[in-house]
Amino acid sequence: MTEQRGEALEAAQNVVDTVSSYQAGAETQVVRTELESGLREAGVTVPQGEVERLAQQISDGEQTPEVTEVGTDGEG
């Protein structure tokens, strides 16, 4: 894993942790919007499928999910 990818994963996980702490159990669309906003502010791209998975798990009230994918070179 490159250092840049590691930093992107860490930044994305920080967003997920924050959204999860405030939005656990909220509607999936609300969680997705919060994730997308936070990731944009953090300057991190995450593939849409990964955002959907994270949003669903947070909405379901599961434990805070782990980010497993980040985009590179504007992917996501």
Rank of each mutant, 00 (worst) to 15 (best):
P47G: 09
Q63G: 08
Q29N: 13
E75W: 05
Q57P: 05
L54V: 10
E66A: 11
E52D: 15
G25V: 03
G43Y: 00
T68K: 11
E36K: 14
G6D: 15
Q56C: 02
A8G: 01
G74W: 02
G76D: 11
G61A: 10
L54E: 07
V51P: 08
A26P: 12
V46L: 03
T2I: 09
T68P: 05
V51F: 09
E75M: 05
V15R: 00
E52C: 04
Y22M: 12
R5A: 13
V16E: 09
G71Q: 04
Q56F: 05
R40I: 03
L54C: 09
Q4Y: 10
A11S: 08
G76R: 00
A8T: 03
D73K: 02
S20A: 15
R32T: 13
A26S: 15
E34M: 09
T33P: 05
G74N: 08
D73I: 06
T64D: 09
G38T: 04
Q63Y: 06
R32Q: 14
L39E: 10
V67D: 02
L54D: 08
A42D: 09
V46I: 01
E66Q: 14
V67C: 02
Q23E: 14
G71S: 06
T33A: 14
R5F: 10
G6K: 07
Q48E: 15
A42R: 06
S59D: 10
T72Q: 11
I58M: 07
S59W: 03
E75I: 05
N14G: 12
E36A: 08
S37T: 15
Q13N: 02
V70T: 06
S59I: 08
E69S: 06
E41R: 05
V16D: 08
E3A: 13
Q63A: 10
A11K: 00
E66G: 04
V70Q: 07
Q23P: 02
E50G: 02
V19T: 00
Q48Y: 10
T68W: 03
E50H: 06
T18F: 03
S20K: 00
Q4P: 11
V46P: 06
T2S: 15
S59P: 12
E41T: 12
S20C: 12
T64N: 13
S37W: 09
Q57L: 08
V31K: 00
V67H: 04
L39R: 05
V70S: 08
V30K: 14
M1W: 13
V19F: 00
Q23H: 13
T45M: 04
L54K: 01
R40W: 03
M1Q: 14
E75P: 05
